[in-house]
């Protein structure tokens, strides 16, 4: 399986988890993702995910001013988003546990 396909499923939850830590914006999310090792994600990938999350009402977006002058979009998590994040973490744990059992099973 290609890395991008594997990433697609998990990226939404990772972004939701970053937003859950407090109000943030696109570039900041990108920097956090990069610092954790997701270094090949650009804004072209990030913004469609943010739009999806907003449409599902998992996050809220407000337009404010940036210290550099232009407009900036700030994101916060909603109650529904927090609930979804808990669910996503549970699902992820379950899936990775099962996958690990199969992928790293040692023949005895």
């Amino acid at each position: 399986m290609e890395e991008s396909q594997l990433l697609k499923g998990i990226l939404e939850s990772c972004i939701l988890a970053i937003i859950a830590k407090g109000e943030t914006y696109g570039y900041d999310i990108l920097s956090t993702l990069e610092s954790k090792g997701f270094d090949n994600i650009g804004e072209g990938t990030l913004y469609p995910v943010l739009t999806r999350l907003e449409k599902k009402e998992y996050i809220l977006c407000r337009i404010g001013s940036s210290p550099y002058g232009p407009k900036r979009k700030y994101y916060t998590i909603t109650a529904l988003g927090s609930k979804q994040l808990v669910q996503a973490i549970e699902n992820y744990k379950k899936i990775t546990h099962t996958a690990n059992l199969i992928l790293f099973e040692e023949d005895t």
């Binding site: 696109g26 570039y27 990108l30 804004e43 337009i63 550099y68 002058g69 232009p70 407009k71």
Partner: peptide
């Protein structure tokens, strides 16, 4: 709005 967002990201990345 998109232009404004791009400019903001560019300015921060440039800094």
């Amino acid at each position: 709005l998109t232009l404004s967002l791009i400019m903001d990201s560019f300015l921060e990345a440039q800094a």
